[in-house]
Amino acid sequence: MNIITLAHGSGGVLTHKLIKEIILKEFNSPILRELTDAAVLKVGKNTIALTTDSYVVKPLFFPGSDIGKMAIYGTVNDLSVCGAKPLFISCGIIIEEGLEVDVLKNVIHSMKEASFVAGVTIVTGDIKVVERGKCDKLYINTSGIGVMGQNIKLSIDNIGIGDKIITSGSIGDHGISVLSAREGINFGGSIKSDAAPLNKLISKILRAGGVRFMRDPTRGGIASTLNEIAEDRNFGIIIEESSILVKQGVYAASELLGLDPLYIANEGKIIVVVSKDSASRILRIMRNDKLGRDARIIGEVVKKYSGKVILKTKVGGSRIVDMPQGELLPRIC
């Protein structure tokens, strides 16, 4: 690896290689090595979660959302899938010289609205301005702090044979929304980003019990997330193509562009691994929430296919779902 490419930011094979071979080699922290969406930390008698993320999506505004909402919701969701109640957000903004002030105002207003919807408070921040041409309009970094719920320990180590895989709804909406705005392509239908805060839905799920692990499938889509779960484990994952919801507009766009919806980014969905006995109960709870009304069981954890994700196709075949190899849709978040 001599240079960094766009593929290193895809959330796929090269991203994981970069993290393991360079970052973890130097930042040799046991907490960091867990590679969770947020670090779970003991502070005195309390347990908190801390996360950080950066947003470079292009364009800044697209159907259903914008970079400001994404920055808040993404941070809230990364805390929530670890079992924390999100509370406080920091915001760092890097601005290119020449950006219209009204654009910045609109982004800041979106962040304010998103914070109110998610029930979090922006408490600190920073602004930097760089020369014209040294940044593409505006980038955002957010960090978040949340308080862990009592007796909540979500981990891939909890997953066992027979556990069910649930998604909270359709996949690929966000990635296709951004792509359509970026390229000026109308794929037909009303494709909007699914960006949303999932903390309230997740709180309901956790109270039901039976949750082993959860993650929000952003970069690399559900393919990347499921591979992260199965990697180096003594179990495999089988998913059913017929059970995975892909909206018609997303399906049409994927067919036209040669994309696989399994690999397209989401910003308002979760993958939940639950015990077999609790699956029906949790599914009902999710479907009673507007952000989970299209939830469905898409697969299960199996003894064979260790370390692999297998898709059973609609025509009766099967294929391996690999970790993403390159960058399908750069700057999608």
Rank of each mutant, 00 (worst) to 15 (best):
N2Y: 10
I4S: 10
T5K: 15
L6C: 06
S10V: 05
G12M: 09
G12N: 07
L14V: 07
L18T: 12
I22V: 15
I23Q: 12
K25H: 08
F27C: 08
L32E: 11
A38S: 13
V40W: 01
V43M: 10
A49D: 10
T52F: 05
P63M: 02
G64A: 05
S65P: 06
D66C: 13
I67Y: 04
I67C: 02
A71N: 11
V76E: 00
N77M: 01
G83K: 01
A84N: 08
L87F: 06
L87V: 05
I89Y: 04
I89V: 14
C91W: 10
C91T: 11
E96H: 01
E96M: 01
G98D: 00
E100A: 14
E113N: 13
A114L: 03
A118T: 02
G125Y: 10
G125L: 07
K128C: 07
E131V: 01
E131F: 09
R132A: 13
K134A: 13
G144N: 03
G146I: 10
K153C: 09
S155Q: 01
S155M: 01
I156F: 01
I165M: 11
I166E: 11
G169P: 09
G169A: 12
S170A: 15
H174W: 08
H174V: 07
G175T: 06
L179G: 07
S180H: 03
R182P: 06
G184K: 04
G188C: 00
A196C: 08
L198M: 14
K204N: 14
K204G: 12
L206K: 00
A208Y: 02
A208Q: 11
G209S: 06
G210F: 05
F213C: 06
F213T: 01
P217K: 09
G221I: 00
I222E: 09
L226F: 02
E228Q: 09
I229T: 03
D232Q: 08
R233T: 13
F235C: 10
I237W: 07
I237T: 09
E240H: 14
E240M: 10
E241A: 12
S243E: 15
S243L: 11
I244G: 07
V246L: 13
K247P: 04
G249Y: 02
A253I: 10
S254R: 06
L257Y: 07
G258H: 01
G258I: 01
G258V: 01
L262C: 02
L262M: 14
N266D: 15
I271G: 05
I271F: 04
V274L: 06
V274G: 12
D277M: 05
D277T: 06
A279W: 00
L283F: 03
L283D: 04
L283V: 04
M286E: 08
R287T: 05
D289I: 04
K290Q: 14
D294K: 10
R296E: 15
I297G: 10
E300I: 01
K303I: 08
K304Q: 11
K304L: 10
Y305H: 15
V309E: 04
V309Q: 03
I310H: 08
K314Q: 13
V315L: 15
G317D: 00
G317V: 00
I320C: 02
I320D: 09
I320Q: 07
G326Y: 12
G326D: 15
L329Q: 08
P330F: 02
C333S: 15
